[in-house]
Simulated assay, not measured.
Amino acid sequence: MKREVLIFWLIAVLAVIVTQPGAIGVANWDAPYGFYKDLGAWMEAAFGVSVFVFLYGLLRREKIGIISLTLHALLLISIAVVGYQADMLALDEVNPNFSFFDFIVVSFLMASMALYLFLPSLPWVLTGKAYYSYDRPLVIAEVVLTAIAVTIYLLYRKSEEKEKRDLTAQDNPAPSESSSGQAEP
């Protein structure tokens, strides 16, 4: 896999990972509304940041490729559908007029708040105090996504080392043998 593709997917996964702590903090700011509100807030923030990752991918489409862009577009659609449905379940009684357009607008606001609150919420996340008991699936998702990000990073490092070895081999070709069977200096 090309290094540019690995970087793109690492950024895409990190965009989803980094938004969770701050989004959960925003969702539980005044009162715990339940799992769907936390999931919806996270997906709103993830969608807002992932749109910019997709735009980055469009700018580098020659190196990233149409397959990765198509897969990321499907990821964006999935995030939007899950997030909107979670918001509808959480906010149905509070705001029955919440529309998909509202989801899109709120996603960029939630993304900025989630990124802003990432560092302040990290100690709470690492100690487990940021989550309620019903948030266990979100914690599992965060751990799985972190494992995926680590795997992508390790693949990137491996491809980087392979590229360095290949460049070194091109710069220092093996000595050729002369007709007498001895290597030339």
Rank of each mutant, 00 (worst) to 15 (best):
Thr70Phe: 15
Leu6Pro: 04
Val53Ala: 11
Ser176Met: 12
Ser178Met: 11
Phe35Lys: 07
Leu75Asn: 12
Leu122Asn: 02
Asp30Lys: 13
Ile104Cys: 04
Met43Ile: 02
Val82Cys: 04
Asp135Glu: 10
Tyr116Pro: 00
Gly34Trp: 03
Tyr156Thr: 05
Val106Tyr: 13
Ala174Gln: 13
Gln170Arg: 15
Ser179Cys: 02
Pro173Gln: 10
Leu10Met: 11
Val94Ile: 15
Gly22Val: 01
Asp166Met: 11
Thr127Trp: 05
Glu160Gly: 06
Ala141Lys: 11
Ile11Ser: 04
Phe103Cys: 02
Leu59Val: 06
Leu117Thr: 04
Ile104Phe: 14
Tyr56Ala: 07
Tyr156Ile: 05
Glu161Leu: 11
Gln20Val: 10
Ala45Thr: 07
Phe118Asp: 00
Leu6Trp: 04
Ser99Asp: 10
Pro173Lys: 10
Ala149His: 03
Tyr36Met: 13
Asn97Leu: 12
Phe54Pro: 00
Phe118Leu: 12
Pro32Asp: 15
Leu167Met: 13
Gln20Glu: 15
Tyr33Ile: 06
Pro32Gln: 10
Val143Asp: 05
Gln170Trp: 08
Ala174Asn: 09
Asp102Ser: 10
Lys2Ser: 15
Pro32Ser: 14
Ala147Ile: 09
Ser99Arg: 00
Ala114Ile: 06
Pro21Tyr: 08
Tyr116Asn: 03
Ile64Val: 15
His72Ile: 04
Tyr134Val: 11
Leu74Cys: 07
Asn28Ala: 12
Gly83Ile: 05
Ala114Phe: 09
Thr168Tyr: 12
Pro96Ser: 11
Phe47Ala: 02
Trp9Ser: 05
Ala46Asn: 04
Ala114His: 11
Trp29Ile: 01
Val5Asp: 02
Tyr116Arg: 05
Ser178Gln: 12
Pro21Trp: 06
Phe118Met: 03
Phe8Gln: 10
Phe8Ala: 11
Tyr153Pro: 01
Tyr56Leu: 11
Leu14Cys: 12
Ala130Asp: 08
Met113Gly: 03
Arg60Ser: 07
Asn95Glu: 09
Ser133Trp: 07
Lys162Trp: 06
Phe101Leu: 14
Ala174Thr: 10
Tyr132Pro: 00
Ser179Ile: 08
Gly128Asp: 10
Ile66His: 09
Ala12Asp: 07
Val26Ala: 13
Ile24Lys: 00
Gly34Pro: 08
Ile140His: 05
Lys164Tyr: 07
Leu58Lys: 08
Ala23Ile: 01
Tyr56Thr: 04
Val18Ile: 15
Ala15Lys: 01
Ile77Leu: 15
Ile104Ala: 08
Gly40Tyr: 06
Ser133Thr: 12
Val139Trp: 01
Leu10Ala: 07
Trp124Ser: 14
Asp171Leu: 15
Asn97Trp: 02
Ala114Cys: 09
Tyr56Met: 08
Asp92Met: 07
Ala80Trp: 08
Gly83Arg: 01
Gly34Leu: 05
Ile79Thr: 09
Phe100Gly: 03
Leu58Trp: 08
Ala45Pro: 03
Ala90Phe: 00
Ser112Arg: 06
Ser178Asp: 15
Glu93Arg: 13
Leu58Met: 14
Val143Gly: 02
Ile24Cys: 07
Ile152Glu: 02
Glu184Asn: 14
Asn172Pro: 00
Gln170Glu: 14
Leu138Cys: 05
Ser180Leu: 11
Gly48Lys: 00
